[in-house]
Amino acid sequence: MIKYLLAVLICCSSIFYSYSQTQAFKIFDKEGNEVSFEMMAESAGQHELVFFGELHNNSIVHWLQLRLLKELHRQNRPVILAGEFFERDDQINIVEWFSGKMTDKTFESESKLWNNYLTDYKPLMLYAKNNSIPFFATNIPRKYASLVSREGLGSLESLGPDAKNYFPPLPIEVDKSLPGYVGMKDMMHGSGMNVDYMVEAQAVKDATMAYSLHGHLKGNTVLHINGSYHSNNYEGIVWYIQKDYPETSIMTINTVEQEDIQVLEEKSKNTADFIIVIPNDGPKSY
Rank of each mutant, 00 (worst) to 15 (best):
M1S: 14
K3W: 02
F16N: 08
Y17L: 13
S18C: 14
Y19L: 14
I27Q: 07
V35L: 08
E42F: 13
S43E: 14
S43G: 06
L55C: 02
S59L: 15
L72D: 07
H73F: 08
R74A: 15
L81D: 01
F86C: 12
E87D: 13
R88N: 11
Q91W: 07
E96M: 09
T106Y: 12
S109L: 09
S109Y: 01
S109P: 01
N115I: 10
Y121G: 12
L124P: 06
M125S: 09
I133N: 13
T138D: 01
A145M: 09
S146Q: 12
V148T: 08
S149T: 07
E151L: 15
E151Y: 14
G154H: 10
G154L: 08
S158V: 03
D162K: 14
K164Y: 15
P168G: 07
P169R: 10
L170G: 03
E173K: 12
E173Q: 11
Y181A: 04
D186C: 06
M187L: 11
V199F: 04
E200C: 00
E200W: 03
H214G: 13
V222E: 11
L223W: 05
G227R: 04
H230E: 00
S231H: 01
V238M: 02
E247N: 11
I250Q: 00
D260A: 10
L264R: 05
I275F: 00
N280E: 10
